[in-house]
């Protein structure tokens, strides 16, 4: 059985170049691209009007965004390895600080924010995983070592207890943030892992990349519980629906897929374009229907809503 999602709106040329990352808050969608600006659109209105533009945020372009679940904070990572923190203040985003890795520029890659935005976790080009406390001077509080392979993806569990990372050599690691120790080194993906995502309840971890399958792991047991196959190209982005029922994925060939976690199968495939989809995100739920957004090399943001039955 498949689900139907309809295109409800498209923001054409949202950026002048590839949109590499999307982040979602309860009322907004944030987009980042190869240009230096970060754009913020309102998701409360049907035509998704632009709410704010953060100009010249990252000179060399922006490749990653991460928003806190409460919607009060987000972080952006630029190609120079520069990371900025942003805070919502009277409905406007203002800069709230910089994350400075004591290392060389360009080494921070993927980023993740905890639910209240207090902690930021980031991978580095040489495989290190660092966690900063954004309250009180952005101090680095955790340093996890891995085998030195480029950390391409990272996520924090909603409860903040775990950090997961995906690496170029296929490695997937789960760290316990309380103890600062490696919890699991997860086997299964031998190719570059470009996306990792904890399920909302934190029980499952999804990981995907060049293997073109999505591996699902049981976080507590550290075991792989499923393989979702169907993508024909490298997978760059994963996002869980609020309830954890569905997983959204986007791939290099421009396809976005919705997967049912219960049935362990793909229930919808969307191809707006054959250009790379760099980022996919579920939208805040309005009414009964789930919706999501995709963005990538076609420079636009496409919005989808589940078709109502009957």
């Amino acid at each position: 059985m498949s689900k139907q999602y309809l295109t409800t709106h498209t923001i054409d040329n949202a950026h002048i170049t590839d949109i590499f990352s999307l982040a979602v808050t309860p009322h907004q969608i944030i987009s980042a691209s190869g240009s230096s600006d970060i754009k913020i659109y309102s998701t409360s209105e049907p035509d998704f009007p632009i709410a704010q533009t953060l100009t010249a945020a990252h000179k060399l372009g922006v490749h990653h965004l991460a928003a806190s679940k409460d919607g009060h904070h987000f972080a952006s990572a630029g190609f120079a390895g520069d990371v900025k923190l942003w805070r919502l203040e009277e409905a406007q985003w203002v800069k709230n600080g910089d994350i400075v890795d004591g290392n060389k520029a360009g080494e921070i890659w993927a980023i993740a924010l905890s639910a209240e935005g207090q902690y930021l976790a980031a991978t580095s080009v040489d495989g290190r995983i660092n966690v900063w406390d954004n309250v009180g001077g952005c101090k680095k509080i955790r340093e996890f070592e891995t085998k030195g392979s480029f950390g391409m993806a990272i996520d924090l569990s909603v409860d903040g207890r775990y950090t997961a990372s995906g690496h170029e050599n296929g490695g997937v690691y789960v760290f316990n943030n309380d103890t600062g120790r490696l919890l699991h080194s997860l086997p299964g993906l031998i190719k570059a892992v470009r996306a990792v995502a904890f399920s909302p309840a934190g029980k499952l971890l999804a990981a995907a990349g060049d293997a073109r399958v999505i591996a699902l792991y049981d976080v507590a047991a550290g075991e792989q519980v499923a393989n979702l196959s169907g993508h024909g190209a490298w997978i760059f982005s994963l996002d869980w629906s609020d309830t954890g029922e569905f997983l959204l994925s986007g791939a290099y060939d421009g396809k976005a897929k919705v997967w049912s976690i219960d049935r362990r199968e793909c229930v919808a495939t969307h191809t707006e374009t054959d250009k790379t989809v760099w980022s996919v995100k579920w939208l805040p739920k309005t009414g009964r229907n789930e919706g999501f957004a995709t963005a990538g090399a076609n420079r636009g943001i496409s919005f989808y809503r589940e078709a109502t039955g009957g």
Binding site: F20, F79, F150, T276
Partner: peptide, 11 residues
């Protein structure tokens, strides 16, 4: 510029 950024993205 775009191609360099994509190169970094796909690594």
């Amino acid at each position: 510029r775009r191609e360099l950024q994509v190169m970094l993205m796909v690594s």
